[in-house]
Amino acid sequence: MSLDKQTVARIARLARLKVPEEELQGLAGELSGIMDWIEQLNSVDTSSVEPMNSVADLSLPMRQDKVTEGGHPARVLANAPGGAVYLEPGNPDAGGFFVVPKVVE
């Protein structure tokens, strides 16, 4: 399977990666190589094998419906990359918003 430049550009855009035009051709070659390798795996007949979801034979761990977290907006908002606005200046634990550039349609 070979990927062309347009496909690589599209994948990059979907992943929000900025790839300069001159690098697209090279990446197309590399990605096509990876796809070829994966396709080799397709030559193995796995029709009688269950898909392996995990290397260990585990079942999905579950949690009770109990509130165990929350109530620490200051900690959560401390990580806001674009900053935060707080409801009450000087009291970040009263709550506030993440701030991002305008994204309205």
């Binding site: 509130v67 977290e69 959560v76 908002l77 990580n79 409801l87």
Partner: peptide, 26 residues
């Protein structure tokens, strides 16, 4: 439900912004 689908943060409607957020949700 009381808590979220994959975290223990509460689901109550109308709370102050970002007061019901776990680090999983963030």
């Amino acid at each position: 439900s009381q808590a979220k689908l994959f975290s223990g943060a509460p689901t109550e409607f109308g709370a102050d912004p970002n007061t019901q957020v776990s680090l999983v949700d963030a």
